[in-house]
């Protein structure tokens, strides 16, 4: 079987190299001998058939404003996919645009696609955390955050983890999880520095396609290099 990965708004929502998330998933799958189909969706494109994984990344507030109607057009389809168990990884602006609402300024509240039951106040002071650390089921997630949002989860929504260093949602927790959909403020991009997280998303996806994801020496070699980069950021966490 082929695992298909769809990146939404790859031209607008990749401000922090978020295309790297698609690359990371595809590369790890391919190292395990699994065929991957990579697609992108941008305004004017057709969404196409059901993918196994949807990724969407970070962008400026003006991009959020401009893309809100685009998200509205595909919101229903995205919600259906999420309900059907499609794996989602949404970072930054992409995460927020998959939420319920985003307050951009005193007069402007835009609607998101509603995959995540979260509301976002994007009028907060900008937060930049070079070594953004999150503890949770994936061990220590590490990367960078750079946003100006306070994110409020509705009752029953789970976070990805607890913030060890940084701001996250603003209440000591970070991100949101619903079914197989994960939203986060982590970039670097998120998956390239966090193979445990990437492998978890892959395991969810291959459970859908019937593939078996077995890692080999090439993954170990890759992960050794990743560890060197992780160590740089881990070394910057307060002790």
């Amino acid at each position: 079987m082929t695992v298909s990965i769809l990146e939404l708004f790859s031209n607008d929502l990749a401000l922090n190299g978020d295309t790297g998330n698609r690359r990371a998933l595809a590369h790890r799958l391919e190292l395990a001998g699994i065929e991957v189909e990579q697609r992108t969706y941008n305004p004017g494109d057709t969404l196409g058939i059901l993918p196994d994984i949807v990724v969407v990344g970070t962008g400026s507030s003006s991009a959020q404003r401009a893309l809100a109607p685009e998200f509205a057009q595909i919101a229903e389809q995205l919600r259906e996919w999420a309900k059907a168990g499609v794996v989602f990884l949404a970072a930054g602006a992409g995460f927020h645009l998959l939420g319920k609402t985003i307050k951009l300024d005193a007069d402007t509240v835009i609607e998101g696609a509603g995959v995540f039951d979260v509301t976002v106040d994007a009028t907060a002071a900008r937060i930049v955390t070079e070594a953004f650390g999150i503890d949770g089921q994936f061990g220590l997630l590490i990367g960078t955050e750079n946003h100006s949002a306070v994110t409020t989860l509705a009752q029953g929504m789970a976070p990805i983890g607890a913030v060890r260093n940084g701001f996250g949602n603003g209440d000591g927790l970070e991100g949101a999880v619903v079914g197989n959909a994960y939203g986060t403020h982590l970039h670097g991009p998120a998956l390239v520095l966090n193979p445990v997280f990437a492998d978890h998303l892959i395991s969810l996806a291959v459970a859908r396609t019937g593939d078996t994801y077995i890692k080999n020496d090439k993954h170990d070699e890759l992960d050794q290099t990743i560890d060197l980069a992780r160590e740089i950021l881990i070394g910057k966490l307060p002790r």
């Binding site: 690359r23 590369h27 890759l222 290099t225 060197l228 160590e231």
Partner: peptide, 21 residues
């Protein structure tokens, strides 16, 4: 460089080889 490992990681994901850090 102090952050050379980030470049190494980027290349590794592209499947490109490097000799040494």
């Amino acid at each position: 460089g102090p952050k050379g490992a980030f470049v190494a990681t980027r290349l590794a994901y592209e499947g490109k080889t490097f000799d040494r850090i």
